[in-house]
Design a protein around this nucleic acid. Sequence first.
DNA 1: TTGAAAGCGCTAACAG
DNA 2: CTGTTAGCGCTTTCAA
Lengths: 348, 348
Amino acid sequence: MTQLGRGGGSAAPRSVDVARLAGVSQKTVSRVFNNEPYVSDEVRQRVLGAAEELGYRLNNAARALASGRTRTIGVVTLGTALYGPASLLVGIERAARDTGYTVRVVNTADGAPAGIAGAVESLLDQGVDGIVISEPIDQGEVTLRVDVPVLVLGAPADIAGPRAVAAGVRSDLLARAATEHLLDLGHATVHHLAGPQRWYSARDRLEGWRAALTDRGAYLPAVVEGDWSAASGYEVGRELAADQDVTAVFAANDDMAIGLIRALLEAGRRVPEDVSVVGFDDIPVAAYVTPRLTTVRQPFDAVAKQGLELLVHAIENPDADPLPAGDPPVDLVVRASTAPPPSRTTPE
Amino acid sequence: MTQLGRGGGSAAPRSVDVARLAGVSQKTVSRVFNNEPYVSDEVRQRVLGAAEELGYRLNNAARALASGRTRTIGVVTLGTALYGPASLLVGIERAARDTGYTVRVVNTADGAPAGIAGAVESLLDQGVDGIVISEPIDQGEVTLRVDVPVLVLGAPADIAGPRAVAAGVRSDLLARAATEHLLDLGHATVHHLAGPQRWYSARDRLEGWRAALTDRGAYLPAVVEGDWSAASGYEVGRELAADQDVTAVFAANDDMAIGLIRALLEAGRRVPEDVSVVGFDDIPVAAYVTPRLTTVRQPFDAVAKQGLELLVHAIENPDADPLPAGDPPVDLVVRASTAPPPSRTTPE
DNA sequence: TTGAAAGCGCTAACAG
DNA sequence: CTGTTAGCGCTTTCAA
């Protein structure tokens, strides 16, 4: 008498089964599972009980098909274990979950526009209600044909066409604070070990550094550029190490700062006695390397949380204007890699 | 002439629209988009052209509903930016994409069984064809009610019930290599700064260390335990630093090793002249901290790739036996944090 | 407060 | 090689 579905084995209970067992209509089951009003408590309990008994689980594919919504957010991020992107991803997932969304992830090899476009396409193919692009390279901008809201983290929103919102990391503010810390210590100027300038966030940091220097009327040294890795910080840092005029360096991230410090030490220049170094991010080991690294902490969680609020708002209120993004707090962590410049360490 | 769907605004073309334009049946469109055989090249081109012209995009919710498959893999991972889990996640996503799957991610606060169970439930709710559990805490095992294959990375498969496969990180082999390196250098024994023992992968490393010591008949010192963080390595490392008998330490990850080294230096013990330290992971900054860290590299990409092969095999061949997992290569990276013990540095 | 009917856009099975 | 016919399990009208 067992009437199996034509599929054969699968016996996953559906909402009609629950309805039958609870003695209500299928629509009522749907109401209960969507927390819709106008269901008496008694009926609600009956339905929940029946669902429990059958081990019922709502079929999301069917729901998405019928409703046109997936309650899924797609995230495009860098395919690396770099602390920044990884932290943002964690923050995004948490924030999404808190607002009732789940997260689909696609990595790009290098954050370049073509790869991002491909990743976005694949997300759109899968079906997502919104997209987060985390820390993209924004040069050679591709305008994406997207019909869902897009949140760009770490770049201006205009990279991604209409319905785009941006959450401010405001790296420039943090970079400025880092630079000013060095200036306040008495350094005549501050050199900058920059991130790859194809990245908006790298340019943003550079801008903050430049602004701090300009405001104080300090000399603006040539910029050297790494690729975020400690290895590049080391390579590029050798130039800096060879230049005896360098007494203070602001590195665009902690990894490069660590590589730079190694280059300095190997060149016989002490940190911070001869050269001060400030990093960027406050990676977990920053407090324990030698010397303990002064750095600015990026508020990844706050940024992710706020960004997701904007995105979800845009998803759920298609016509409303995007919410304005607030400025995140500046958190300079002073440790042992910064000190006054050598000339001032021995006052007469 | 514009015939809008009754939805109002949404005008997303469906496969029937493509079919109409191409002058074929809707099923043929379906065939083309599924790369099924038995479609003439001419028709295929016509369909593709029509799809392109309309900007057609296959609706995955409908596909999933009709086929019962999502081509999505759910990943449960730790909600941290720790290098290990983050690297695995990247590797998993890449491997999944290479095999035509996409990835849904849920983070757990701490990898504890209850959180994992919840994450798995939510993945199952969303609909996934398979699940990857990355680096779980496996104590107080929960057996999950799962009807899809589960891949457990960094723990034995039996944590997750039936249809579970495991990919071997074989931390024990790597831990053994790290320990033997120290022994080979002439250290009488090697201390171990372990990871939290609720983690299988931490216990696995401990086993490898213990086995190496036992095989050589070396004295087995008491184990100290951190929580993977550099901060804990520092805290716990102070005990080790105070003990003059300690000449060699194997730390269960690089972050703890870095914290430990700081504790040693602050206690006036030089690394590696007085104490040798080996880490685990080969995080990107390991080569640049002071002293440059000797460590064993974890083959995250290889593990993820192999694990996903097993998982996809299990998904697509429900009845076949799980493939056996091979042993990953051991890659010891000797740098500057290890040296012979003090007594031997000045041979008479 | 509840129910009935009608699809959402696709794939599966079976014909041709 | 191509088409026809049924659903997949929900949500959405609309009616009661």
